[in-house]
Design a protein around this nucleic acid. Structure first.
Lengths: 339, 339
DNA sequence: CTGAAAGCGCTAACAG
DNA sequence: CTGTTAGCGCTTTCAG
């Protein structure tokens, strides 16, 4: 039914291999012959079967991206950057949502390896057991991680300077006069988020300013919402919160609204990511900017290089962040009121 | 290097086909033999090569999703729904960002067909020429479209009731007393968005209320921003705008803020999609809700069915929408001030 | 420059 | 229940 190489070879009166060579643009074929083959291929609407080719070449021209959830706008940006880079190398991109679930993540990896993808770009590898990580490394696929705290040093990584981002938030809030602070962060195994927390806590300690109360939870809108409700109930003295990403910050804002807390009068909030929407929430969110699209793009470019030439040294790129000051932060009321 | 079926067959002292049968769980193999093979496979960390299997079975266990831009949270939601449904059927999902660019879209389709994906879920087919659509239909892949205005009736579709959504917006705004309205919409070829516009315009006319000024442009945050700046400059009399999706509405809100227009005092805005963030923008956005995740999931389930049994009648599902009233709409000032 | 032939790793008849 | 035998559609030596 589908026209195959054999059909066009027969039509052109040449051998299969000549047809193959003509189409793959290899040298060693007479221009006329080649043109003839090309014309016939076009006329017959020929589409080379890439899975057959893949079987012999061992490359699938397919990359994979494993993230916790594409609905987080951060990952959507990363995904777009990765996809654009992949497209330039004529590769397609499979996306997988792991929800940070070890079972799910391993299942995906198995499937990807079975399909012989050329490379895997992963949010994180922390959910995997040591043996699983070993297996992954042993499998030979190119891997690059989107965070730095890889248990195995052999994986390449590209990530934002999360520690510095947390530090930036700490300095801002402390500078404004906040002493009772909190931090909303993701699951303990989430490398990037806990790095931000570490930067925040360490910097506060160095200033010195009292330790923040840190809440671990789901790094989603809902997670931020839940954590905040609990936080405000247990710690009414809190005057500022640093959310380890913007969507958690949004959840926090919602919780604040529900309790009648005014931002930034009663509560200062700083996020992390600088999502597009963070400039139009109420009030516009002060946040740490990281170049999301570029991060995905850069990571995919590295992955493509790794997939091409094996046995390359792992590389570790860290990407700068910066503070974006908007309207969600102000000095604490107590500080000015002397209460 | 990688262990293959032959290795485990040799190790188990059975024939290749017996090994194959044991692993694929087919009937007709002695439980003991089967268990032995399974054990050896596990011990050797065997991963069946799915591309080899794909070559013989003709199925790749891979689906594709072609959207304009995954960074639009609407598509991220749809994508997640589609991915979850695909996962249940043991399929992976390739995602492609077309930017509604005909060349890019066709290039993706070519690549997907070459890889023999089992099905394609597409935002739209409007960007394709008639012949391209014919080719796609002739290729035999299962296709389902995420909008209803398919030029070719043979493609299945699942979409929200876009016309009704536009009508809902019209009735709300007209009921509030607005007479000078505008509509921000996407490119003319964008089926869903123009359908919303049609519902809006027709309903206004039936009320009757003066025709809105409709602006066509990029259906993105930036697009909404640009269109709004132009709109407010040319039509200062406008008191209400219906944006054909939430991200354009956000862009509109930004433009309004920049011009010092207060929402909803000076300007009412209604969006479409009911994105998560629309409840925390300033002010919370009145919008038309459509079940995004479910839409993607339902569409993928249909696609999976189509991919399984060929020659099935195309199916057309339309999913209900509803108005979510929040704080971005109010009666026009002129109406009450009598100006 | 072109042809013949040997696989890539797996499944699927068809026999036994 | 198990083994034998053909391929799936393409690339790639190796000869000519």
């Amino acid at each position: 039914m589908k026209t195959k190489l054999e059909d066009i070879a027969r039509e052109a009166g040449v051998n299969l291999s000549t047809a193959s060579r003509s189409l793959s643009g290899a040298y060693g074929v007479h221009p006329d012959t080649r043109q003839r083959v090309l014309d016939i291929a076009k006329r017959l609407n020929y589409r080379p079967n890439r899975v057959a080719r893949g079987l012999v070449t061992g490359r699938s021209q397919t990359m994979a991206l494993v993230v916790s959830d594409i609905r987080n706008p951060f990952f959507a940006d990363v995904c777009r950057g990765a996809e654009d880079a992949a497209l330039e190398a004529d590769c397609d991109l499979i996306v997988c949502n792991s929800d940070l679930d070890p079972v799910k993540q391993m299942r995906y990896i198995d499937s990807l390896l079975a399909k012989r993808v050329d490379g895997i770009l992963m949010n994180s590898v922390e959910a995997l057991s040591r043996v699983q990580q070993e297996q992954l490394a042993a499998s030979g696929v190119a891997v690059v991680l989107l965070n730095r705290t890889a248990a195995l040093k052999r994986f390449s990584t590209v990530a934002a300077d999360n520690f510095e981002g947390g530090a930036l938030a700490a300095r801002l809030l402390a500078g404004l006069g906040h002493r009772a602070t909190a931090n909303l962060t993701g699951p303990r195994k989430h490398g990037n988020l806990t790095e931000r927390t570490r930067g925040f806590v360490k910097t506060l300690q160095s200033l010195p300013v009292p330790d923040p109360v840190v809440q671990f939870g789901a790094h989603t809108f809902e997670g931020g919402h839940e954590m905040s409700k609990r936080l405000f109930a247990a710690h009414p003295e809190i005057t500022a919160v640093f959310a380890a990403n913007d969507v958690m910050a949004f959840g926090c804002m919602l919780a604040a609204n529900e309790l009648g807390l005014r931002i930034p009068r009663d509560l200062s909030i700083v996020g992390f990511d600088n999502l597009n929407v963070s400039q139009i929430v109420a009030p516009p969110l002060t946040t740490i900017h990281q170049p999301k699209y570029e991060l995905g793009k850069s990571a995919m470019e590295l992955l493509l290089r790794l997939a091409q030439k094996k046995d390359q040294e792992p590389e570790h790129r860290v990407i700068g962040v910066r503070l974006i000051e908007r309207a969600s932060c102000a000095p604490p009321r107590e500080a000015s009121a002397g209460d």
